[in-house]
Design a protein around this nucleic acid. Structure first.
Length: 215
DNA sequence: CTCCCGATAT
DNA sequence: ATATCAGGAG
């Protein structure tokens, strides 16, 4: 970890402590799934879509397509209808089918745990890959989604809008034990209080340790 | 950088 | 009417 001033180290540790106190310190994804490839597909579907919507769609989707072979053999147009309400449905349907086929042809139907293997799967970037690594394989992983990008910067813990740079900045400052928790708890904070539009700083439990809070 | 895109909140 | 949502690819 990067060497910080004692004061800054204590500030970040206090933020972590309060996040865990409020939202929990255990790894638990918001996307419902029963196995690795289901979480992979759910995460692909979650691009620019609420996870509440994804969970509605995957409930029926995983009942209709029960195996990887079912996904690999799916009809594109029918899959587009099945996932329509998540948006970006053409790209997502195409990617999920291609992804299923690659998992079968390249990895014997198993989801690989290596970042380099995950990010070359169709529709899978660093964010999706790190969700799978953290939640399925318990590998410490920083997941930079829209909430983590926005709130980490507001808290003065990151200095950039670039998700990859933010990922490495967070790895330098957060202990490995909270990498996954940071993502999940910051999402919770982003929904309840530090919303994208007008953040509710007046009732934020991090107000006194957040440089973006004026009050 | 642009494009992909429906559902929901404001 | 506009902004935003567990982003990724060209």
């Amino acid at each position: 970890m990067k060497k910080l001033s004692k004061k800054e180290r204590e500030r970040i540790d206090e933020i972590i402590r309060r996040l865990i106190e409020r939202y929990g310190g255990e790894s638990r994804t918001y996307l419902e799934h029963n196995n690795a490839w289901q979480l992979l597909f759910a995460t692909i579907l979650s691009a620019q879509c609420t996870d509440a919507r994804v969970n509605i769609v995957t409930k029926d989707l995983f009942r209709k397509y029960k195996t990887l072979e079912d996904f690999a053999g799916a009809d594109l147009k029918e899959m587009e209808k099945d996932i329509y309400s998540t948006g970006f449905y053409h790209n997502k349907a195409k990617n999920i089918i291609a992804c299923a086929r690659m998992l079968l042809s390249e990895y014997g139907g198993e989801v690989p745990k290596e970042l380099e293997k995950l990010i070359v799967l169709p529709g899978v970037g660093r964010k999706t890959a790190n969700v799978v690594r953290g939640n399925i394989f318990d590998i410490p992983s920083i997941v930079v989604d829209t909430h983590v990008k926005r709130i980490s910067k507001k808290l003065g813990i990151t200095t950039t809008e670039d998700p990859v740079k933010a990922e490495f900045e967070l790895m330098e400052v957060l202990p490995e034990s909270v990498w996954i928790i940071w993502n999940l708890d910051v999402i919770a904070l982003g929904r309840e209080i530090c919303v994208a539009g007008t953040p509710k700083c007046d009732r934020c439990f991090l107000a006194d340790v957040c440089p973006s809070c004026k009050g």
